[in-house]
Computed example of a mutant assay.
Amino acid sequence: MVDYFAGDSRTNRERMLAGDLYIADDPESARRARRAARLADAYHRAALADESAARSILTELVGSLGEGAVVRPPLYVDYGENITIGARTFVNYNLTALDVAPITIGEDCQIGPNVQLLTPTHPVDPEPRRAKLEAAEPITIGDNVWIGGGAIILPGVTIGDNSVIGAGAVVTRDVGANVVVVGNPARVIRRL
């Protein structure tokens, strides 16, 4: 088997954060993932009892939470700390945001239920898969974007301002500003 890390003294976490190939076995990443799972669970529980307490937990979980942003639990993340949510953005139930790489959600967005924002990638070639290698690419969502329920946004995608992603769409490449995209793979059906 090929040694993909020959001459590379970085930890797998350092490789992951740099967007390079890594193996998801770093102890620091595991600690941060457990922290995120505990906070996400506490957020869900607190949201049922005390909204102000819940907001402080959510603020601790995500990297940045804009004023007036609302995230309905449950929320599923890898680390949480790599997620930025802009002001006045509304996120409905069951967001899965795998934030191995940064996920940036702009201001005034509407995100439907069961949306998946997926930054991890896996090699296509068999040899790196055998070595259990992964990588990650950031996701960027502009301002005033609407994402319909069940949509999936794949690694490395940027969505331009004022765009609409149809329910159930699978977004595999960048989406420009002021368009409506639908389908699998998502395609532009209308300019706004």
Rank of each mutant, 00 (worst) to 15 (best):
V2C: 08
S9C: 06
S9Q: 12
T11L: 01
T11W: 09
R13I: 05
E14L: 00
R15T: 03
A18E: 15
G19P: 15
D26Y: 10
E28V: 12
A30T: 08
A33V: 04
R34D: 13
R35T: 10
R35F: 10
L39S: 02
A46L: 05
A47N: 11
A47G: 05
D50C: 12
D50M: 11
V62N: 07
L65A: 02
L65F: 12
G66M: 01
E67N: 15
V70P: 11
V71E: 00
V77A: 03
D78A: 04
Y79A: 07
E81L: 09
V91Q: 10
L95D: 07
A97C: 02
A101V: 07
V115R: 04
L118E: 13
T119M: 01
T121L: 00
T121D: 13
H122I: 00
R130G: 15
A131Y: 05
L133D: 15
L133Y: 15
E134T: 06
A135L: 05
T140V: 05
G149W: 09
A151L: 07
A151V: 08
I152V: 15
I152R: 09
I153H: 15
G156P: 02
D161Y: 04
V171C: 12
R173D: 08
V182S: 06
N184H: 13
V188W: 10
I189E: 09
R190A: 00
